[in-house]
């Protein structure tokens, strides 16, 4: 074989591999969306129906009007949004304060605090289920969204601080010093100089927390009882308990839950890697 032919063959091989990877990754997602738009006789069949032949909005409509477990899916989407957004807003304030402390100041216990942040991230949240359940109940927050919000803030904070501190550290100190010399107060310096520059990092960190809280299932399963307080993941799991599964409905609901995460993912994909792999990847 000539070198040129071999090179061309290698190129074909690579592209074939790329297509295989793409299909493996995308097909299950496509299948979820396709099933959501198929009429029942195209879903419950032993034939292969690659595309919805007579696409229908029945399932989407049904999960909104008739709903799941007695409530329209609007209510679950709203509950999920309330939990995720409140978690993000409160968490962002706490995280920004703590991140500023570790990135801008040298003080005793700074190293200890950072190591503590790392270690608590290693503790499996599933292990804290029992004590947190008892605590939430003692505080009278059982079966209320506020209980979920409190738990989610705790679960997301360590990572938020860890990620945000690199963004704060990246803002040149000279800018703040210049503002100081010009007579700005500490608060003005923070609000007018540091905050605008850290804002993009704050957005990225917030998206992370949002996804975590939006996807959270284990605590929603344990801390919520009334169906009217279900979040989306909890409502989806309700389908699973049924004797015969309504695949059209579940896929419609699942698609609706996935869309916001997908959008946010594409927005922060780059930071995703650098945030998680921390110092290991230099580049």
């Amino acid at each position: 074989m000539t070198p040129l032919a071999r090179k061309r063959l290698a190129k074909y091989g690579l592209n074939a591999g790329a297509i295989a990877v793409f299909l493996f990754a995308v097909f299950p997602v496509y299948w979820m969306v396709a099933t959501a738009f198929k009429p029942n006789d195209e879903i419950y069949t032993t034939e292969f129906m690659p595309v919805p032949l007579s696409p229908t909005l029945d399932h989407v409509e049904r999960v909104f009007t008739k709903g799941v477990a007695g409530h329209s899916i609007w209510e679950y989407l709203l509950n999920s949004a309330i939990v995720a957004v409140t978690t993000v807003l409160v968490g962002a304030v706490f995280a920004l304060l703590a991140a500023t402390a570790v990135a801008r100041f040298r003080f005793r216990f700074r190293t200890s605090f950072l190591v503590l942040l790392l270690i608590v991230q290693m503790v499996p949240a599933e292990a804290l289920l029992i004590p947190l359940f008892l605590m939430v109940r003692r505080l009278g927050m059982y079966d209320q969204l506020i209980g979920l919000i409190v738990v989610n803030i705790g679960l997301t904070l360590p990572f938020s601080v860890w990620m945000l501190r690199t963004f704060v550290a990246a803002v040149p100190k000279d800018l703040e010093e210049a503002a100081w010399i010009d007579g700005a107060t500490r608060f003005t310096t923070f609000w007018k100089v540091l905050f605008p520059l850290v804002a993009p990092g704050l957005v990225a960190t917030s998206i992370f927390s949002f996804i975590t809280a939006w996807n959270e299932f284990v605590f929603a399963l344990t801390l919520i009882n009334e169906t009217s307080n279900y979040t989306m993941p909890r409502a989806l799991s309700f389908f699973i308990g049924q004797r015969s599964t309504d695949w059209g409905g579940i896929m419609a609901a699942s698609t609706l839950m996935t869309i916001p995460v997908l959008v946010f993912f594409l927005l922060v994909q780059r930071r995703m890697v650098s945030g998680l792999v921390a110092g290991a990847v230099k580049g």
Partner: peptide, 25 residues
């Protein structure tokens, strides 16, 4: 770029939906 966007889609699916999709498959 096409493949990265594709695998990003798989990565973004919430755990609850992952379970449901594979149960269905």
């Amino acid at each position: 770029t096409v493949v990265v966007v594709g695998i990003m889609a798989a990565w973004a699916v919430p755990p609850t939906s992952q379970a449901i999709i594979w149960k269905w498959l």
